[in-house]
């Protein structure tokens, strides 16, 4: 394969599939429909549009179309996707950590079990920060404050039950307090939360690493820790693990195919997505957006999902956001 170009490989794959229609050969789609289960502008939408430009720019497919179906943490989008894309070898849905939580919290009738995992693509580490004026200087200081009185430590971040809330609850639990009692102040959109954190109104801020980088550089905020494993390259600040509290969590995003795909169709989708994820254009886009490349192929992704679902459900149950 290394001697022929990508374009030839796709043409060859598609040609073979069309001529032979043999189930064992991957059927790579030539036209893709990407569903972003969120409004234009958000992380899922940006992922879909970045995929669109790389897929067509690298000529991996002839066309790629993005549609947005917003609402309820993506649970409306997934319901629509399952209805409209059964057996469709050219349909992909963007999803991620937030949808895992939203499905549990909203008791959504359609879950990620109904769709076909294709690949995990990107991820963002979470970070804990404090205002420059805060008396809290280290992870240990914060852990001690949380342990002393969990309700006195207020956390500022995004929507209730989202990745920020879960990070806060996990931190409190690991610090030896009841994670379910964490005093989490939910904000809609990054702007309001940032104002609360910058003005030292909340004890600690939680969010994606890239949201805070600029403010740490201008010395308005200080890193406490990042939820990456110790030794991860290219982090702008220390990890939580280095600070003495082993909390690892990533706000990941990936793509799913419709229900009822044959093995060949699944392999075809996987092939196109893998080529995209390994391209230089994709790497450049990730670098520009501050996203980590966390590519996992279908089977590994499916196993990861199972674990992630159990972990998120445990935290949300403890927060009282998911009831039996």
């Amino acid at each position: 394969m290394s001697t022929i170009t990508r374009r030839e490989a796709v043409a060859l794959g598609a040609g073979l599939a069309a001529v032979l229609a043999h189930p064992a050969i991957a059927q790579a789609p030539t036209e893709l429909k990407l569903l972003a289960p969120a409004a234009p502008g958000g992380g899922w939408d940006q992922t879909a549009r970045t995929m669109q430009s790389v897929l067509t720019g690298e000529r991996l497919v002839r066309s790629a179309q993005v549609t947005n179906v917003a609402g309820a943490g993506g649970t409306i989008g997934i319901a629509q996707f399952v209805n409209s894309s059964r057996g469709d070898p050219g349909a992909l849905m963007i999803s991620g950590f937030v949808m895992v939580g939203a499905i549990l919290m909203n008791k959504a009738p359609v879950t990620l079990d109904a769709v076909t995992p294709v690949a995990r693509l990107t991820g963002e580490w979470q970070a804990l920060v404090v205002s420059a004026a805060s008396p809290i200087k280290s992870v240990a200081d914060l852990a001690a404050a949380v342990k002393a009185d969990v309700s006195r430590v207020s956390w500022g971040g995004g929507s209730a039950g989202g990745v920020d809330h879960i990070t806060a609850a996990m931190f409190a639990g690991l610090a030896g307090a009841d994670g379910g009692k964490v005093n989490y102040i939910a904000h809609s959109g990054g702007g309001e939360a940032m104002a609360a954190i910058l003005s030292n109104r909340v004890t600690v801020g939680v969010g994606g690493v890239s949201e805070f980088e600029q403010h740490v550089k201008s010395r308005r905020l200080r890193w406490l820790g990042i939820t990456a494993p110790e030794g991860t390259a290219g982090l702008p600040g220390p990890t939580l693990t280095a600070g003495g509290l082993k909390l690892e969590l990533q706000n990941w995003r990936g793509v799913f195919g419709g229900p009822g795909l044959s093995d060949a169709q699944k392999a075809g989708l996987g092939e196109v997505v893998e080529k995209m994820a390994k391209s230089k254009a994709w790497a450049d886009q990730l670098a520009a957006k501050g996203w980590q490349d966390t590519y996992l192929a279908a089977d590994a992704f499916a196993a990861f999902l199972k674990e992630e679902n159990a972990r998120v459900e445990g935290v949300l149950r403890n927060l009282g956001l998911v009831r039996a």
């Binding site: 309820a72 919290m105 909203n106 929507s159 209730a160 039950g161 809330h165 102040i185 939910a186 956001l321």
Partner: peptide, 9 residues
């Protein structure tokens, strides 16, 4: 809709 602060519908 979902209560913004507690996540309850």
């Amino acid at each position: 809709g979902i209560d913004k602060l507690t996540g309850q519908p």
